[in-house]
Design a protein around this nucleic acid. Structure first.
Ligand code: FES
Ligand code: FES
Lengths: 150, 150
DNA sequence: CTCAATTCGGACCGGGTTAGTACCGATTAG
DNA sequence: CTAATCGGTACTAACCCGGTCCGAATTGAG
């Protein structure tokens, strides 16, 4: 299964590209060309990102987009949330109070725990991290979240 | 955004319910009744689980399903994989070698890192954990995955 | 000052995947 | 043999994704 929607994936790619040369006003079409993504879709994603406060848009001629904050201050979680809405593992964990199985279903709190874990994983990575080249990461075995809880 | 598909969610609910009374042969319709899930869908999910080796099915009269192993030995990741296929965050991380942006897109290794983190989060929780009542968890701040990497 | 060019903003639509259903054949206990 | 139950496939409906369209705002030239 794929976790992120294509749109959200595009969003991260675009935001990362913006983070590569900050403070530069880039138009949607230029971004599309530079990332080799379909132009119309890039425009759509940028709208969502603008709506979510990740980028700020300048309209009119010589307009364009740029990051709303420093790259270090924008997490991947924020980007995907701006596009796909709140992050949740199950239906149950997001539309909080409306599950008919709540009384006899023991999974709820455990899901919320997992939910927090993936949320934290997405939140701990910023756009500044994303632009960094593949770097000597710690051993894969220490990727945290393996010990999600004692 | 919702990460798990509805079917996968159902799968975990069903598997958890099976884990509650192990070694008991339960038919699909009984499971559907006890979990208040649509009966036809439960049957479908059980087929997938059986195919994935999570449950074993007994055919014929007085047949039914039960867990293939002890609940401690079955992870949530396994259950969702049986239904939704391999877990991957982005298109790019699962269909490994076929991305036209590979050469100039710096996000790839970072995604794989996040990917491992959520995979680990799902793998670290077993069905035995799921049936345990909401228990005094450690402080939410220590949910690991917050330190996905130094 | 006016106007045209440029760019973002929001609404709309079609295709594809997923959820859910239904049926029929295979298998086994009694 | 018969009833019950799983296994597989085919089918329909709904929804979401991805893409396209036209209108609003702003700029810069004439
Ligand atoms: S599915 Fe809603 S409480 Fe378990
Ligand atoms: S999207 Fe495939 S390498 Fe970045």
């Amino acid at each position: 299964m794929i976790i992120l929607s294509k749109l959200a994936d595009y969003g991260v790619i675009i935001a990362t590209h913006l983070a590569e040369n900050p403070d530069r006003q880039v138009t949607a079409v230029a971004l599309a060309a530079e990332t080799r993504l379909p132009q119309a879709t890039v425009a759509k994603v940028l709208k969502a990102l603008s709506h979510g406060g990740v980028v700020i848009a300048a309209r009119g001629a010589s307009g364009g987009y740029k990051l709303a904050r420093r790259a270090q201050a924008i997490s991947v979680a924020e980007v995907v949330s701006a596009i796909d809405g709140a992050i949740g593992v199950t239906e149950c964990t997001v539309h909080t109070p409306s599950c008919e199985r709540t009384d006899f279903c023991p999974t709820r709190p455990h899901w919320q725990r997992i939910n927090r874990a993936v949320g934290a994983a997405l939140q701990s990575v910023t756009l500044a991290d994303m632009v960094m080249p593949a770097f000597s990461f710690p051993h894969a075995s220490e990727t945290a979240a393996e010990r999600i809880a004692p």
